[in-house]
Design a protein around this nucleic acid. Structure first.
Lengths: 207, 207, 207, 207
DNA sequence: CATGAATGAGGCTTCATTCAT
DNA sequence: GATGAATGAAGCCTCATTCAT
């Protein structure tokens, strides 16, 4: 249990967020105690309340910040990319990369939804729907242009998201495959699941 | 909220398991209290201890029983089916069906792993690996026979499992699609992600 | 700090009420801690919650029981007594006696009103008004019969109640005066404050 | 809720006393928190300690100042008044007026005595006794001159003080009666409770 | 087997107070 | 003189677990 003794002043809030992320990821929100959190930060339990208003609020803050980032970075990534196939590839690559790099936020964002207060829950679910709509819009566009063969638009979106997100479960930074390789493999799988072979871009080797 | 008031005799243990499943699914293991459980069963808290030895043990029992069933039923389903393509289709259909029918067990089996004691954890993870090996074996067989084009065997297995398992997240019993339709859609997506078009069985319309 | 070690079973609730009365009287509701209460009862803090639902509820219970008793016993005391003068004397005697015998309940009933939840507060204030109306009814009756000379009915009632109630502040069980003597002195003062001398009953010596 | 935002300089202490008076009256000393106090003053919690040394000390200051004022103003009021009957009337009128005008100080001075440290408690009780002795001296003088008929000197004093003080409980500034009328009514009641009718001054109509 | 009550640890939160800036 | 953050104790309450009846 690392102890950043003497963390002080405006840095404390950042330390709390970081420690909260770590502990909630490890033990779950319900199982994490503020004693653990305070110890990890290197501070007395009561001092936490100079920075957060409630354990519940800390959870919401973390998830909200994650969702905001996710949406904002996706926007940046898709900007200027045209055509459903290229946009889908970009989406997949982005999703995999983000989910590898911010594994813990992602995990918490999914698994601790039920620990949110009803109001907080609604807000986060709304953001999540916004994100999903980015993908369904691409699928719909591709379908209308006759590029994608999709049994059901929504089912396909759910399936794709679940598959891509699964990367969090097993990816290890120093494993056999690099982040880019994994993104490539997944993008391929998704595209081949949707695009008739003769429409596949030449750049996608059937390796 | 079913409440088997005054449940007696050997039925109580069954009621506890059922209520536990429900409550852990709703609130999570850490968040569920034995008071809630007792109330759901229609019994006083102390009485639970005539049937379970520990809250932790109840969790393990539920997950273990689920894993045993999963493995046993898969065995039954694959029995007598030959050829990687057909076996893969059977696997997908089974996985989807089971995950739809026993949503709560499945969810708990994934999300509450971290709440298990180390020993219990190891045992369950072992069973889970057994299950995954059933899939990788099929993939490997298909690859060796030149039927599947897989970038990476393990990555493909993880991707497939994550995608199929995702069905729990969104499937609603009385929704637009039947269980069979969903199984078909998913099987298709998986097969097309792995099998070169000319190898696809005629029975799989590219609808 | 007396410790009734081993208090058990159905006696515990009674012990809690008794200890609560004592401690709230001594330190005030806000200042009394459940640690103190549990220690006084001879029990762990958590055990209190097998008998009370909340610190606030204990306070309400104590005050409510006191008000119910006060009203019930007054009814008994006034039963069968006729005529405003005799009824006023009986009221005074009863009030003084009750307030001497149940000093602590009385004190708490006054001073901790503000610590009650709004709902509880309203209920108790309603009962208190009922009690005051018993006195104003007597005063009004006496005034209509020309027996009492009262500047203002309500002011007189408040004045009388405040005076009589003040006995709690100073009376000591083994002091110079007996409970009956004090009741007599107070009754006299009240009657002489209201009744013209020629209407005073012969039984009230101007000693 | 007046909020003197940004109160500066020597005015802050006065604002603290005023806010303290209000909040202790409303919630009681134990229930009032320094956070509430600071908010009411329009200052951060820590800043309070530039003006007070302790929460306990603030309480003592407020009560002590009240008692000092009470004694000093009584002295002024009684100065130059001769004869037990007139002095008693003056005492009653003063007591009622003061208790109406400084309701909150009075209330706190009674009800928060028990929240004082032992040393502070003794000092305040001493001052209170000084005040009571002013009344008993008048009663004793009247008795020796054969003007008052008192069953018991001390009991009478307690009774009178309790009655007069009770005015705090119900008087409303814009109610049916003026402060002067109430003082008159109370004085009458007290005098008639003590003075044989033939000794009553002509100025006191038996209205 | 069920119950009700006890335990002791620990949960989140708030408190009065201190002190560097 | 004001501020914000730290402290450590303590607040009420809930928990899983035990056990006599």
């Amino acid at each position: 249990m690392v102890r950043t003794v003497g963390s002080h002043g405006p840095k404390t809030m950042e330390a709390i967020r970081k420690a909260g992320l770590k502990l909630i990821h490890e033990h779950g929100y319900e199982a994490m105690t503020l004693r653990q959190l305070a110890a990890e930060v290197g501070v007395q339990v009561g001092s936490l309340y100079n920075h957060i208003s409630t354990k519940q609020d800390l959870l919401f803050d973390l998830i909200k910040a994650h969702m905001d980032d996710l949406l904002a970075e996706l926007e940046v990534r898709l900007a200027g990319i045209d055509g459903p196939v290229e946009r889908l590839k970009a989406f997949c690559a982005f999703h995999v990369a983000y989910h590898i790099l911010r594994k813990r936020e992602v995990f918490i964002g999914y698994s601790e939804l039920r620990s949110l207060d009803p109001n907080h829950y609604e807000e986060i679910v709304g953001l999540r729907r916004q994100y999903e709509r980015r993908l369904t819009a691409i699928l719909e566009e591709g379908r209308q242009q006759g590029l994608f063969q999709v049994g059901d638009n929504a089912v396909a979106a759910y399936g794709i998201l679940a598959m891509l997100t699964g990367v969090c479960t097993w990816f290890r930074p120093n494993g056999r495959l690099t982040r880019e390789q994994v993104a490539e493999i997944y993008s391929d799988m998704v595209l081949r699941g949707l695009v008739p072979p003769d429409q596949l871009p030449a750049s996608s080797p059937l390796r």
